[in-house]
């Protein structure tokens, strides 16, 4: 997948730990860790909303798209 998660960068900028963010957002640290390492398939807008609200950032700060040549389309999955 070409979506890159920059959560660790934003957390470092805000000097916040993953556990603290997980508590404030209301999701488990396991799920947040999976998000950070790119192991999740999708993120709900409500979760993204809470993360951006807590970190005082925009979705673009956390999610980055990188063009990958020959990437299979969603329909092929």
């Amino acid at each position: 997948m070409a979506i890159i998660i920059r959560l660790d960068r934003v957390l470092a900028d805000r000097k916040m730990q993953l556990g603290e963010l997980a508590d404030k957002v209301g999701i488990s640290i396991v799920n947040l860790s999976n998000l950070k390492t790119g192991k999740v398939r999708a993120i709900r807008f409500s979760t993204l909303n809470e993360i951006c609200k807590t970190l005082k950032c925009t979705p673009g700060d956390i999610l980055e798209y990188e063009y990958v040549e020959n990437e299979s389309s969603v329909d092929d999955d």
Binding site: I27, N31, L32, N34, L35, K39, V40, R41, A42, I43, R44, T47
Partner: peptide, 9 residues
Amino acid sequence: LQTEYDETI
């Protein structure tokens, strides 16, 4: 569907 749900945060 369950897997999709579980892997969505």
